[in-house]
């Protein structure tokens, strides 16, 4: 049982993600996480402000339950399935990140971004808020996120999904190589 506490290898993760996608497909649903953001907006009454949110959001309750499960999964992983050791990223990444002012991993996340203390600084707050804003705006604009496009869409050989994934990488590379050094230096 020791292995369960260690980080899981990529092939185990990839196989399990497909099994979860297939499970949802055989339940008559589809695997796409970011739709939940639209559903939550709609449930909060955004339908009064834009017709994009004026739909029967209760039909998406199943996906909201999946979202609740994902929070529980994070909690279980932290409480019972983790040793709290640092993420074993490559030496080259550690070096690159130190050059832009992010310390080597001591756990799962960098405290410069995920720490409560940094979230209460102006820069820390804006990084999280604007980062989230880009994710939400971009996911809906592109019609899906990593699960909907990179996994579900590519599995169904959808060219639009491949274009979206290329977009994900354009944005990700620009942020990583051009903007992060400015933001954190």
């Amino acid at each position: 049982m020791e292995w369960i506490l260690q980080p899981w290898p990529w092939h185990i993760s990839g196989i399990l993600i497909v099994l979860i996608m297939l499970f949802l497909i055989f339940l008559g649903r589809s695997f796409g996480f970011s739709s939940n953001l639209r559903t939550i907006c709609s449930a909060c009454g955004a339908g009064k402000t834009a017709k994009f949110f004026d739909f029967n959001w209760k039909s998406q309750t199943w996906n909201l339950l999946f979202l609740v499960g994902s929070i529980i999964g994070g909690f279980i992983s932290f409480q019972f399935l983790s040793t709290g050791e640092a993420v074993q990223i490559s030496e080259a990444t550690i070096q690159d990140l130190q050059n832009i002012g992010i310390a080597a991993p001591e756990g799962l996340q960098p405290m410069e971004i995920y720490g409560t203390e940094s979230a209460f600084t102006l820069r820390g707050f804006l990084v999280l808020l604007i980062g989230g804003l880009l994710i939400g705006f971009g996911a809906r604009y592109a019609g899906g996120c990593t699960s909907g496009h990179a996994i579900s869409g590519l599995s169904n050989l959808q060219l639009p999904s491949l274009v979206a994934v290329i977009g994900f990488f354009i944005g990700g590379l620009v942020m990583t190589h051009l903007l992060l050094p400015i933001i954190f230096s």
Partner: peptide
Amino acid sequence: YIIGGTFFGLGWALTGACPGPLFVNLG
């Protein structure tokens, strides 16, 4: 897909999380 995807990628690299992991991290 290309414009929306680029916005999404900017946010993904900044926060290090896509929509699913946002909530897993909360948990």
